[in-house]
Amino acid sequence: MTLRRKETLAAWLFLLPGFVGFAIFVFGAVVFSSVLSFFEWDMLTKPTFVGLRNFTKLFLADKTFHLVFRNTLWFVLGTVPTRVLLGLIFALILVRNVPGRTFFRAAIFLPVIIPTVAAAMVWRWIFNADFGLLNDFLYQIGVSNLPRWLSDPKWALVAIVILSVWKDVGFSTVMFMAGLQSIPTTVYEAAKLDGANAWKTFVHITLPLLSPTTFFVIVINVISSFQVFDQAYVLTGGGPGNATNTIVYYIYNNAFQWFRMGYAAAIAWVLFGIIFIATFVQFKYQRKWVYYE
């Protein structure tokens, strides 16, 4: 055996355990899932081929899907900018020599690591319309028309956004802190020598040099927000009505509550398409605002 073939053989031996698993649970699953999206199957009777009908139904007829799509979009538009903006503000404060900054960073980051299920359980109690902490606070500061957070279709999605911002703002914060700390101090010194004030320095130096981090934080947040499920599952069960039903929740219900496997697979592919387009668009427009050295 030549040395080259020996190395190839060795490489495949190293790859084998992972490759077998990947072939089944990832590559195989992706192929299976795309085939499945052209079928109707309840896992009891034989699958029937329906062509593109799952997709045409999804796009043209299924009012619930349109609703869960809108809900998810509102969720993304509500959480991503808030998390990014607050994360940036917190990071700008915490990279300064503020007393107690280690403690503050820990406080902001703590919710990130706990299970969303547990976080949603407390917030369900805080949002309780009659005995909840939040409405008590609002009452104390003089709000008379207290929202019935989780049972009012107008407010339920807002509640989910609040919970999600609280839960994950710490992620954006530590990412921005790392980004800010990697900007060399010499750049700031040069700006000072040139007589730039704090605001000018921020707009013309900090923001452009931070833009790769900002871009990354936005992309990651958009991808994960489109996949929102846990919060809605525990906090509202998708309700009231379908007010907080999301795309992933709808996939879950279709596949595992109603056993419409083909239809659920079709929705999952549409979700992939949405995330892909959202990410692609951001990558395309990044050169307009992201500054790479």
């Binding site: 899932s33 659920a264 999952a268």
Partner: peptide, 10 residues
């Protein structure tokens, strides 16, 4: 890039 929901069903 493929979200977990795609592979979850199969």
């Amino acid at each position: 890039m493929v979200p977990g929901q795609v592979t979850m069903i199969p």
